[in-house]
Amino acid sequence: MDYQAIIESLFRGLIGERFIVFALAAIGLNLHFGYTGLLNFGQAVFMAAGAYGLAMTVVTIGPAVNRNTGLNMSESTLFWVGIFMAVVVFPLVLALLMGIPTLRLRADYLAIVTIAVAEIFRLIARSPSLDKWTGSSDGLTGFTSTFYDLSPFTTTDRYFFNLFTGNQFFLVLVGWSILALGTLLCWLMIKSPWGRVLKAIREDEDAARSLGKNAYSYKMQALILGGMFGAVGGMVRAVGFSVAQPDNFITDVTFFVYVALILGGAGKVFGPLVGAALLYAVLDSSDTILRQLVANDYIPESIMSGTQVGQVRFMLVGLGLILLAAFRPQGIFGNKEEMALDDR
């Protein structure tokens, strides 16, 4: 057994790219679910909006615009435009699409519509008929050079206890900065009267309305804002892996975010960070352990093969959701009193 690999994967899970991606998505989901009580099951689509917003702008839409208008935007211009599309435009449109029909209705309608939108995304993103724009199932590549050109680190060296290559380390540093900024913003907003209204809506929307709060508008604001956090997460993912691919944003990805959030504590500012770190430490290291067990024939091929290892993490997430929701909805660090108050 390669213990070093196991320990490395543990630490990468705790602080690495995946942690950053899912912590960002979970911050967004915290605004939705933790503070406003919105059952958004389409956070993966918001993440996809970030990934595709950037990738499509740089690789497909941007060049098409260049061709058709005579504008001559360079790749790096397109990259920055792409970031704007990824972080603002795409999630905004998506949030309106999900929110307008459902935010006036009972919470479960949003759940149904968001999961339907996730399916619509999957069908459209994989459809060969749109290959020209989305790259269908293979996705899009070749949109990250502007970003990595900014990196002060040498690509061939390894950094931070040999955990990361230069490019990875650059991404992780940028990711951590975004994460810090995002958490600070979130903290400010939640502690403000604005955040108080969100919580009131989560507790009882009619009461908030009777007190003069436009619940619909607040829910929409939360949906958009949380979606934007998700989009940033998705964008980091796309840049980190240098590809925007439909399979990275399937419906089930949303539930990874849910597990991370509930694990760390929904409705707490640091919940998403703690939860995502814990989740990925567990998932990544267990993944490495299993792969090694399989590779070294401690687990016979008949019981588990290499491809099946990848499926185990989904089972763990499913199991995690069941156990958390049933027994510790307030998160693993939540206290008794909150537990009592959790039955809303």
Binding site: G37, F255, L321, D343
Partner: peptide
Amino acid sequence: ASLIAALVVSIGFSI
């Protein structure tokens, strides 16, 4: 358990 929690449990089983 609240219905939201129950809904999340059902999703867990689905996965």
